[in-house]
Amino acid sequence: MVKINGKETKTQGMSLLQYLVQEGYHTERLAVECNEEIVPRSRYAEKILRDGDVLEIVSFVGGG
């Protein structure tokens, strides 16, 4: 299980990009941290989610 924004989630060896696309995220509006470190946007496809990973997905909305 991977903890994503506080929730235990089954990701079954997916890449981060696969997960983000499955969940309908706009990848150009995100900042993703894995185990307290930013995942560079160029690495979403190669980043495989592993058991025990703690992921924070910040999905920005407009306004300021």
């Binding site: 706009h26 150009e28 509006r29 995100l30 900042a31 941290e33 470190e37 930013i38 560079p40 946007r41 910040v58 999905s59 920005f60 909305v61 407009g62 306004g63 300021g64």
Partner: peptide, 30 residues
């Protein structure tokens, strides 16, 4: 910033290139 893409750009840049700096951002106040 107000555009989500610009917010994401700056956030990703700072966290990736300046991990020792402090960043306070915003999302959702409409």
């Amino acid at each position: 910033f107000d555009q989500p893409e610009t917010k994401a750009m700056l956030t990703n840049y700072v966290l990736e290139h300046f991990p020792e700096r402090y960043l306070v951002g915003a999302s959702g106040m409409a």
